[in-house]
Design a protein around this nucleic acid. Structure first.
Lengths: 125, 125
DNA sequence: ATTTAGTACTATGTGTTGCAAGGTACTTAA
DNA sequence: TTAAGTACCTTGCAACACATAGTACTAAAT
């Protein structure tokens, strides 16, 4: 047994919640990035901005390795394009394989949401 | 610079999709387990069965360390209880802290679902 | 009484992944 | 020449799910 009552010793309560939020996002980033690219080619900084619009904050150290991974798997391709305001940009693009894969991920996402909602709704009744 | 479109067909389909599915589940397990325990105390094997009912398959090697983690954080407590058909069972129980934390996780989950859906819906229109 | 099968909990090692932190390189303006 | 802004890249770490293997208790079969 041994539970505790050490509520709010620290006052702020659940800094852990931030960690769990981050944890929950794992895996869906791939889905989001592929979705964004399905709307049109984009370069990394642009992708980060679009994710920010939907409250999904992603940083460079996360995005760049992920894009490279997706490229190496054949889901993405890219081209360089000059910019009028800075260094050249690396525009990523969904490949055909990437499009098929995206569809599968969307199905997986829907199934996951259903499964989780089914589980947590029982607890709310 | 300037290469492009290295599409590199791998030919075979997406055994990778299985990996991404697994990846997407990460982090929501905590939410699901706490939700299940909010419906009443349960021991690990029972939890696994309940998760199976909602298509979220989890194995022992995943569940036990997670439960220990949640217990050490003070979100769960447990008690031993005799069984008529085997070794004693470790019944886990939500603490008060755990209940509050669960509520936060549910909010985070809802926000995540909204954010992801917002992102992928743009790609579908 | 010893073995076998079933149930339940525990421990260890590995691969993936998100992220913080730091670095390089190009462009424009002061 | 310096500074500031933009953009891309790398390294090292920590968290986590999972596979695998192991321990322990009970009851039925031999």
């Amino acid at each position: 047994m041994g539970n505790s009552e050490n509520t709010e010793k620290t006052g702020e309560g659940f800094e852990r919640a931030a960690g769990a939020q981050a944890q929950m996002r794992k895996g869906v980033l791939e889905l989001c990035i592929l979705s964004i690219l399905s709307q049109g080619d984009a370069y990394p900084t642009e992708i980060i901005d679009k994710l920010k619009d939907t409250k999904l904050v992603v940083v460079e150290g996360t995005l760049y390795p992920l894009l490279t991974r997706l490229k190496n798997t054949g889901l993405l391709g890219y081209r360089w394009e000059e910019s009028t305001s800075g260094p050249p940009r690396k525009y990523y693009k969904l490949t055909e394989i990437g499009e098929q894969y995206l569809k599968e991920l969307q199905v997986s996402w829907t199934e996951l949401v259903d499964a989780v909602n089914k589980t947590i709704e029982k607890g709310k009744k």
